[in-house]
Nucleic acid binder design. Structure first.
Lengths: 189, 189
DNA sequence: CCTACCGATCGGTAGG
DNA sequence: CCTACCGATCGGTAGG
């Protein structure tokens, strides 16, 4: 057993937080998963809360990066919307643990970190709204679209993907993106 | 302070489980909320897990009842779909704590209760699929609709409502139901 | 990264 | 529903 890196610790913490929740995971649980004692974790980190903050901020960063990439990848509103959907699905499925912790464990964060998470989510939601508003302005999406509600509905579908999607299931990732896009585009067109 | 009923205990437990999670709620927290000591709770219940099981099963029952009511309220597929959406929104907003616990704390249940919850969710999802499949059969919904995926997308939107909806917000409950129905009906028509 | 440990808190019980 | 507890486990520290 080679020595564990700080990154190993944070990644494994993310998995356990996603599976059992922050309060359902003890430092001894985490140590056991890594092949060491709970007390040994404190040579890598200062405290349990620090682990949660780092996992959640990794989740937030994945979304931030994906949004920037999607928004520069295309200019036409429908293509942009598809890029956002594809990026979101990729983030959710490539980083399930960090994303699930980011989406579900914010209540366990200390006030300062929780405020940052909420800000990050708001910013991301704004970029989805911007794509929709842009499409309404250019006449690609319907003029009476409620942009705020539509953004919430789209994000609800996307954020739930990790709750049911299986890579070995009937639908592959591209098929999933197609299905979400198809469903959503009818709602906004 | 009048004596607390078992129902008071279960309802307050539901609120705390929804707000802080099962593992984030101690029996002393729950006692404090009810104006008594943690140890006094054991005259009402046998254990902490029993509280979780009961909260979750109340959540499941609300959905079950709503599904039955919606399916008998209308026969035409679009009206049925609207009734399902309206019923679901009402359950989510009228029983936020039980619903949030039902949706988010299944992992904290013992194996037997968790299996029952999963069965209840599957049955409910089946009734949503049945409405969609019925609409496809009668030609009201599009023939190439992926009923399984559509049901998941619709439920994703509905189950997320309690995460963002405020009764004092811009949209009232009927407006919310209209918006969800409008969004969804375009996706299936 | 382990040994050896700390005070605090956990779910829960006996007896009234 | 409280008093008075129980053993187990919690996050975390000192010292090596």
């Amino acid at each position: 057993m080679s020595p564990r890196s700080r990154d190993d610790v944070v990644r494994t913490a993310g998995r356990l937080f996603a599976e059992r929740g922050y309060h359902g995971t003890s430092m001894r649980d985490l140590g056991r998963e890594l092949g060491l004692l709970g007390s040994s974790l404190y040579s890598h980190i200062e405290g349990k809360q620090e682990l949660l903050v780092e996992v959640v901020e990794r989740g937030a960063a994945f979304f931030q990066d994906a949004a920037e990439a999607a928004l520069t990848a295309a200019a036409e509103p429908r293509l942009r919307l598809r890029a956002v959907i594809a990026g979101h699905v990729a983030v959710v499925l490539d980083h399930r643990h960090e994303v699930r912790t980011f989406l579900s464990e914010a209540a366990a964060l200390d006030a300062a970190a929780r405020a940052r998470v909420i800000t990050a989510r708001d910013r991301y939601e704004q970029s989805v709204r911007a794509v929709l508003a842009d499409g309404v302005r250019s006449g690609v999406f319907r003029a009476d679209l409620d942009v705020k509600l539509a953004a919430i509905f789209i994000l609800s579908v996307l954020n739930s993907v990790d709750r049911w999607y299986r890579d070995d299931g009937r639908v592959d990732r591209k098929g999933l993106v197609d299905a979400v896009f198809d469903f959503v585009i009818r709602g906004v067109s």
